[in-house]
Amino acid sequence: MSETITRGALLQRVSVWIGGGKSVIGPRQVKPANGSGQEVPVQYGRVASAEELLLSGDTRPANSLKEFFFPRHEKLYGYQFKGRQIELTDTEQPSTEQIIVGGRPCDAAALPVLDHLFNWDYRDETFNRRRELTTIVTIACRSFDSHCFCTSVGSSPVDARGSDVLLLAVDAERYEVRFVTEKGRRLLNGATTTANENATEPAAPPKRFEMEQLKEFLAGGYERPEWKTTTLRCLGCGACAYTCPTCHCFDIVDEGNAAGGLRARNWDACQFGLFTLHASGHNPRHNQAERQRQRIHHKFQIYPDKFGETLCTGCGNCTRNCPVGLGVLSVVEAIAAAPRENQSQK
């Protein structure tokens, strides 16, 4: 026996949530305001009506869900110069309830991974507050593309990690409902029916590399030439990091004038040359190969060593959004398959 929900019943709930002042976030077509013929992406965003939601489970949004917990720009506090005194003003804590509908399992799975970081040596107030305020309904992926590699990092199209409810399409009108948390059960209470129907498990992308081989390479291959040969085309932008569900680096900046201003937390990315540039002018990571090496090490060695979790859910957004088709997958595939005899080569 399983629970099912119709698309109509789900959308009706969405309308009620929106009407009740809750923030509903899901995949939607970014509408071009001019008909220039430019391809416009599907992105996660706050929807104004239930009709905007794309719930087929077929389109991978070009951004990730992290920005609804860890925004790209976040004011930490304000400051005003009052004579010789400085007056600080607190920012308002987030208070709007968020409901994510139609999230991808690879996006939701990133959130428990990020929980470690945001509760490490400091409990991040706003991140945790937003986590508490959010309920996540994911839809199992019905299709995958050549950039998807969730199965290579221990996940899958039906990974329920990080979700409160996971939906699997039974047909065009109905979903099988898998409740993951009590929060999820409360959210859809009364909207589901018990039926003797289970969705067929969707096809999963093929495994693209062996994690063990990758770890072995990372343990001994710091000086390997593959770092350079596989990343030569990297242009050094932040498209990979900013559309990644797990990348979380940030910079703290002050913005203001002689009267006052604000201190904010802005996203930052390890592929920028400025990221590690010292005030002295020295840069410990000289080139893109070294920056790409750092990125892969952080995801598959440093973060796992520290928190026991891989900092990658295999969503493939890095490759999809890369101007030159480079991403975690192409680098990792190349190094995991690299011949072992050179492993100790320095």
Binding site: V30, A33, L235, C237, G238, A239, Y242, T243
Partner: peptide, 18 residues
Amino acid sequence: YWKTELARCVKCYACRQV
């Protein structure tokens, strides 16, 4: 139009780098 469009800019600087 520009307010709607630039609200999506994440400052990844892909435009600059390419």
